[in-house]
């Protein structure tokens, strides 16, 4: 007989002092650390630590497409492979890519495509491999952010970077950047991504219940958070070269 054990969530997602369970204010982001050029054999790579999420991304390309029938004669293709390590979540994750991985790979690829000049590379593919080694809510947002960094590090021409962050509703309050437990126990989750060359949303998913005015408010909150993360992305990209400059010219 199978035994069903229901996940236990705390009844309240806010502490008595009004802060969230991990001590953040409503609009605070989790601590974020980014680094580029971490994988030597890849054309471009990046690493992100976003709260408890730890994600690597590597980029290869442009190169010939295998299997060959996927190649398009008039433009290149972008293929994203989002994978989670078996040890990245509490219960062992089965290593075969499932429905969720395929969905996230697709949305990340759709979200990054508008910033690339794929029409310049017909018959080739850019491949982005994203490996989640530790997951704690919001991996699709962190993956999109780190994939954009890896593409820029590979020297792929891009219209701009892509930044992603989630907003949501927990215990009737709108908050920025939901952690794993807030994502599961909360009322709504709204991952967003933005392309900066036209200031447009490139990704908007929604799960839960929210009113229209709350939706508008949460999108404004997302904009503020995205701008903060964008600054960190730019800094991570440039820091690699600035460090060498300072070291050499001293």
């Amino acid at each position: 007989m199978t035994l069903l054990i229901q996940d236990e969530y705390p009844k309240k997602l806010f502490r008595e002092d009004g802060k969230r369970l991990d001590g953040r204010e409503k609009l605070d982001l989790r601590p974020i650390k980014m680094e580029v050029d971490v994988i030597k054999n890849a054309d471009g790579s990046a690493y992100i630590e976003w709260g408890n999420n730890k994600i690597f991304a590597s980029v290869y390309g442009p190169r010939e497409v295998h299997p060959h029938h996927l190649a398009k004669p008039d433009k290149g293709i972008l293929r994203v492979f989002y994978r989670m390590a078996t040890f990245s979540v509490f219960d062992r994750k089965r290593p075969a890519p499932g429905r969720r991985e395929k969905e996230i790979s697709m949305i990340i690829s759709d979200c990054l495509e508008p910033v690339l000049f794929l029409e310049l590379y017909p018959g080739t593919s850019f491949e982005v491999f994203i490996e989640v080694v530790d997951a704690d809510g919001g991996t699709r947002c962190a993956s999109t952010t780190v994939a954009a960094l890896a593409l820029a590090d590979a020297g792929v021409p891009m219209r701009s970077l892509v930044t992603s962050c989630a907003v949501g509703k927990i215990d009737g309050e709108l908050v920025t950047d939901l952690s794993g437990i807030e994502d599961k126990a909360g009322e709504a989750d709204l991952p967003t991504a933005m392309t900066w060359f036209n200031d447009e949303l490139s990704l908007l998913q929604f799960d839960g219940q929210i009113t229209q005015s709350e939706l508008e408010e949460s999108l404004e909150m997302a904009q503020d958070a995205l701008e903060q993360i964008y600054e960190m992305q730019l800094d991570a990209l440039k820091r690699k070269y600035i460090n060498i400059q300072e070291e050499a010219e001293d």
């Binding site: 820029a152 590979a154 020297g155 021409p157 891009m158």
Partner: peptide, 24 residues
């Protein structure tokens, strides 16, 4: 005018170029 690469900014006559620091 927007950069599309990671690189060094160069102003030559009235052109703005970006000299790439990585790529293929």
């Amino acid at each position: 005018i927007i950069s599309v690469l990671v690189g060094l900014k160069q102003i030559k006559k009235n052109y703005i170029n970006v000299i790439p620091l990585n790529g293929f």
